[in-house]
C-alpha cells in the first residue's frame, strides 16, 4: 500500500470527499468538501472518481511526502510558493495542473492568497477507511477521514496506486478563468428557503438590499455575517426541522448565519433563503471581511445555472492512456 506522510498539515487540513449522503435520518450530516467543484475538477484531471477523497487545506498549507511515485493536482484557492521536490530539484506546483511527484519528494503548499480552501488531489485518491459510505471528516462528531479529526504532523494516509502510462493535461486558460470567476463571485444568488414567506415583505427587501460582511466566527458548520439586522418571524424559534447546505438562518439577534457542510441535520431557527448550489463554491472561498450581497432568483433559474456550471466538466481534458507493448488494455 502506498502512503502519504503528513510532515506539517497546516492550520486545518482534513480528508474530504463529496460527503456522506443519505444518513440524515440518524442525525449524520454530510460534511464533505466545502468547495466540491474544485475537488471534482482535481479528481477528473487525475482520472479519479468524482467521489475520491483529497486533502482540504484551509488558509495555510503544509508539507506532505508520498512513499511512491504519484501524480497530484492542486485546485481551489490560489496559493503562494507551492512546490514539489527539495533543494536543486525543487520546482513550482501550479494550480489546476496534474504534476508528477517521485517517491520521497516533498509536496509543499503555501498560504492561500485568494480564497480560503485549496484541495490537494492525488492519483487514486486518499484511501482512509470509509464510514457510512464516505471518507469525509466531520470533526464535531469524530466521524470519517483520518480518525475523525484534523491531520497532525506524523500522520500517514493510505493513497491509491497511480494509474501508469497516462498523459495528463491541464484545462484551457479559458476554463481556468471561468472557474476563477465562479469563486470570485460575491453577489450570491438565493432561492426561497423553508420559511421565506413567513418573513415580512419589508424584511425580505431589506435583506436583499443590504451588504453583509463575513465574520471571523465562521467555519465549516456555519458562516456568520454582520450587517443590517433582519427581524425574524415570531420569536425567532421554530420547531426543529431539516437543514440544507446554504440555508440562511436568522436567529433572534437578526444577523444571518449560513448553514454549511458540517451543520447539524436539524435546526430550529427561521430560514430566510437558501444559497443556490452553483454559488456554494464561491461561499466556500469567501474570507472574513469579504462583503456579500444576496439576490433572489427562481428555483428554475438556479437549476439552469447549475447545469451551465456543469459544462465545465465537458471541457476538461482527461488523462489518456499510452498503450505499451507489454500491457493489454486497462
Amino acid at each position: 500500500m502506498t502512503h502519504l506522510r503528513i510532515v506539517e498539515p497546516g492550520m486545518l487540513t482534513t480528508v474530504q470527499d463529496l460527503g456522506r449522503i443519505g444518513h440524515s435520518a440518524i442525525g449524520v450530516t454530510t460534511a464533505g468538501a466545502a468547495d466540491p467543484l474544485s475537488l471534482r475538477i482535481g479528481n477528473r484531471l487525475l482520472g479519479n472518481d468524482d467521489h475520491d477523497a483529497a486533502l482540504e487545506i484551509t488558509l495555510i498549507g503544509g508539507h506532505f511526502i508520498p512513499d511512491a511515485d504519484t501524480i497530484v493536482c492542486l485546485t481551489g484557492a490560489d496559493t503562494t510558493g507551492s512546490s514539489i521536490g527539495d533543494g536543486e530539484t525543487r520546482r513550482d506546483l501550479p494550480a489546476w495542473t496534474p504534476m508528477p511527484v517521485r517517491a520521497g519528494e516533498s509536496i509543499r503548499i503555501g498560504h492561500c492568497t485568494t480564497g480560503t480552501r485549496a484541495y490537494l488531489c492525488i492519483a487514486g485518491g486518499i484511501r482512509t477507511p470509509p464510514a457510512l459510505g464516505s471518507r469525509s471528516t466531520h470533526i464535531p462528531s469524530g466521524i470519517g477521514g483520518h480518525e475523525g479529526r484534523a491531520l497532525k504532523p506524523g500522520d500517514t494516509l493510505p493513497i491509491g496506486e497511480q494509474a501508469s502510462h497516462h498523459i495528463y493535461s491541464k484545462p484551457s486558460q479559458a476554463t481556468i478563468e471561468r472557474i476563477r470567476a465562479i469563486h470570485a463571485r460575491r453577489s450570491l444568488r438565493i432561492t426561497h428557503g423553508a420559511h421565506t414567506l413567513r418573513f415580512a415583505r419589508d424584511q425580505l427587501d431589506r435583506f436583499e438590499q443590504s451588504v453583509y460582511t463575513m465574520t471571523e466566527q465562521s467555519d465549516r458548520m456555519g458562516i456568520r455575517f454582520r450587517g443590517t439586522a433582519i427581524t425574524p418571524p415570531g420569536d425567532g424559534h421554530l420547531r426543529s426541522e431539516a437543514t440544507t447546505i446554504g440555508a440562511i438562518q436568522v436567529p433572534h439577534a437578526g444577523q444571518p448565519i449560513v448553514l454549511f457542510v458540517d451543520r447539524p441535520t436539524t435546526g430550529g431557527y427561521p430560514i430566510i433563503a437558501c444559497i443556490i448550489a452553483a454559488d456554494l463554491p464561491a461561499l466556500a472561498q469567501c474570507r472574513p471581511q469579504d462583503e456579500l450581497r444576496f439576490q433572489f432568483i427562481t428555483r428554475h433559474h438556479a437549476v439552469a445555472l447549475l447545469k451551465e456550471q456543469e459544462q465545465i466538466f465537458d471541457d476538461l481534458p482527461r488523462p489518456t492512456p499510452i498503450p505499451t507493448a507489454s500491457e493489454t488494455s486497462r
Binding site: G22, E241, A242, T244, K307
Partner: peptide, 18 residues
C-alpha cells in the same frame, strides 16, 4: 431521492436536480 430527513411535523426530501 438522495436523502430523507424526518422531523416533528416536516419531512425533507433531497434530490439531484440535474
Amino acid at each position: 431521492i438522495l436523502d430523507l430527513t424526518p422531523a416533528y411535523d416536516t419531512l425533507q426530501v433531497t434530490i439531484d436536480p440535474l
